[in-house]
């Protein structure tokens, strides 16, 4: 690489990154501005006075914001645990190829992960209504799992296929049984794959909107994505509060991303469901 490029390229790269991430920067600094500064005719690119006023407002007593966060944490965590419990063994079963019709089942999983939520929303609403489960955590958790279970089966299957098979065979000879081998040998050496899937399941559920919108009328079950809308009312938007809520809602996602960045990138290329 030429000497000028050695200096120029990182600068250009950094500039591209800053331009691309500008919306996220704007979200964060808007949440730290005073209301008067937000509605000023000339926007400031850095707050003249940093204030946590908007954050105080969203966590005030009248607002149920804490409740929405707790709901989101509950829904996303249970979704993640159930998803892994269902999809890890299924992915292993498909990876072993010892059952009939395995090729068909793999294609089935790949196809159902392509189905959009808008297609399933009203039949799921009808199904959960019949079971008397609309306005419950369990309905929205199951609905979320329609996104994360097929994704995790697809990603974990390719992960399990790439594992050396002699380990599992040795354990089988030692009399572990298939389940014993799976739980004692396969799961421990597949920690990275499973953690990647867990991270994705959590983020999917944390970001989910449509199923919650159609299944949860009762505010007390609302996740943060639904609750946020209250700052974007019919009679004008409280931009400071909305951006503060958006910042709070992005925090866990960005945190998960920074911690598991390497695995996330591999998860994107392996599964690729979102657009």
């Amino acid at each position: 690489m030429k000497k000028t490029n050695k200096i120029l390229f990182p600068i250009v790269g950094f500039a591209i990154m800053c331009i691309y991430l500008f919306p996220i920067y704007w979200m964060v600094i808007s949440s730290l501005k005073k209301t008067t500064e937000i509605f000023a005719s000339v926007p400031t690119f850095f707050p003249t006075e940093i204030t946590v006023e908007s954050f105080k407002n969203i966590f005030s007593k009248q607002s149920q914001f804490q409740k929405y966060i707790l709901n989101s944490v509950l829904i996303s965590s249970v979704n993640t645990v159930l998803t892994i419990i269902l999809s890890a063994p299924a992915a292993y079963g498909l990876a072993r190829k010892k059952i009939k019709g395995v090729g068909f089942l793999i294609i089935f999983v790949l196809v159902v992960q392509m189905f959009p939520a808008s297609m399933l929303a009203s039949p799921l609403y009808s199904l959960f209504s019949k079971l008397g489960l609309t306005n419950s955590y369990i309905s929205v958790i199951f609905a979320n799992m329609t996104i994360s279970v097929p994704y995790c089966i697809a990603v974990l299957r390719t992960f399990f296929v790439s594992l050396p098979s002699d380990l599992a065979e040795a354990a089988l000879v030692d009399g572990c049984g298939i389940w014993g081998t799976f739980l004692r040998i396969i799961v421990p050496i597949s920690k990275t794959g499973i953690m990647t899937c867990a991270a994705f399941s959590f983020v999917f559920a944390w970001s989910e909107f449509m199923y919650s919108l159609t299944l949860l009328n009762d505010q007390k079950y609302w996740p943060i994505t639904l609750g946020m809308r209250l700052f974007d009312g019919q009679y004008g938007t409280q931009w400071g509060e909305l951006m503060a809520a958006a910042t709070v809602c992005s925090l866990p996602v960005i945190l998960i991303f920074l911690v598991a960045q390497k695995y996330i990138v591999s998860g994107v290329t392996a599964g690729s469901v979102k657009g």
Binding site: I24, W26, M228, W239, M243, C249, Q261, V265, V268
Partner: peptide
Amino acid sequence: ALVLVGWMNPVIISGSTFKWL
């Protein structure tokens, strides 16, 4: 890698932010 944050972030958040922008 950092550019991926824009894709990972909940779409509801990105939508709200673009509405403001």
